[in-house]
Design a protein around this nucleic acid. Structure first.
Lengths: 206, 206
DNA sequence: ATTCATTTTAAACAAATGATTAAAATAAAT
DNA sequence: ATTTATTTTAATCATTTGTTTAAAATGAAT
């Protein structure tokens, strides 16, 4: 039996508006994005934006939650999986971020900006510090398999090495004089390299 | 003989406007900053903004160049100094960035945003790749004192480890639940740690 | 076919915003 | 002291921008 599901088609008005809003908000931020730009990009009448989403703010909130999702969702599952080891989790985290950001390259700057403009909206579920990953980290140091590192530094280093190049993408491409393809290849390399580097950092004074 | 120099006093109208503009533009960006906010923050009549700086755009350009200066100026001197060694230069670079960003913590996100919105405005003087530092890097690898690493990765890693925590500051403080003082202490620690980490990364498979 | 609800459109509104103007206040020059 | 130049102010202008409205078009139900 075929169950008729009411899925919002990709070409529905609502979805067209959201796509346009996603594109513009993510790239230009809230203030620089005008409702008329969204309407034009979506190819719809301006009034439909308010008809479907009440206000620019409400529409922005939807996109914001989507983007925060891109950034934080999935991390919790990785860092709390009891079946994967400490170093393996780092590989999975780095792979996860780089893969996602290759598809959504504008998300990092969006999230960093949003985090500064509205720190309250940052999801608390991102419980990296109380995670199973942290337990494993403590165990590894206790066993002397890695050297002690302030967990704050460890977090900054993993995220920084994975995310920063995307936030700084135009600078990187300009300084190194590389095109989009070459940049993406560089990022793919980092999937393997970053975990090795983190390991090397954790091996100092072991 | 005392030479009378025409220094713009800190309390001059022009300087008051620039200070207010610097504060607001750097923190909120171009579009989210309103000319009336600048006037109020500076405690001056709105018309004086246009009287002294012609337009919001022109005023923004001045602040942008200042901020890019904070970010890029000084780097060239460090990386082209023939008297300092390879690893010493990394220490100096990291120290330089962290010191500057502790004073101007909002500059990184501003620059990253500006780099994406107007890649053309990025200064070309930032010739990290043709620097003496790069020559030294080649020499080090040739002598087998460090392992080969794509110069792009090396650049991303140095800048990322130094700059990313400032761009992600609210996220870092929220997740780690630390206050401003504790964050700054963490950054001071990184002055010593980042160069050690870079060294460890460069020692893999030496 | 007719009625009713939903969706879309063109037009307009009200507030916000960057900029300008002309007059007033202040400072500098003669 | 008087003139001239500079700086500041209040008011206003012209667009831009987010939102609303009332009518038209479209689709669904009876």
């Amino acid at each position: 039996m075929v169950v008729a599901q009411k899925i919002k088609a990709d070409d529905s008005t609502e979805e067209k508006i959201k796509s346009a809003a996603r594109k513009l908000f993510t790239k230009k931020g809230f203030s620089a994005t005008k409702t008329r730009d969204i309407a034009t990009e979506a190819g719809i009448n301006l009034a439909l934006l308010n008809y479907y989403f009440r206000s620019k703010e409400k529409l922005f909130e939807i996109i914001m939650l989507e983007n925060l999702g891109h950034f934080f969702q999935g991390v919790s599952i990785i860092v709390n999986d009891e079946k994967t080891g400490f170093h393996n989790k780092i590989e999975l985290l780095v792979d996860f971020y780089i893969s996602r950001l290759l598809v959504n390259p504008d998300v990092p700057l969006f999230v960093l900006n949003e985090a500064r403009n509205n720190p309250k909206n940052l999801p608390l579920q991102f419980n990296l510090m109380n995670s199973y990953f942290m337990k494993q980290y403590m165990e590894e140091t206790k066993m002397g398999r890695i050297s002690k590192m302030n967990p704050g530094h460890l977090m900054i280093n993993i995220l920084g090495l994975a995310i920063f190049p995307f936030a700084a993408r135009p600078m990187v491409q300009r300084i190194r004089n590389i095109n989009d393809t070459e940049f993406e290849e560089l990022m793919l390399e980092r999937k393997k390299l970053v975990p090795q580097w983190i390991k090397a950092m954790l091996d100092i004074n072991k």
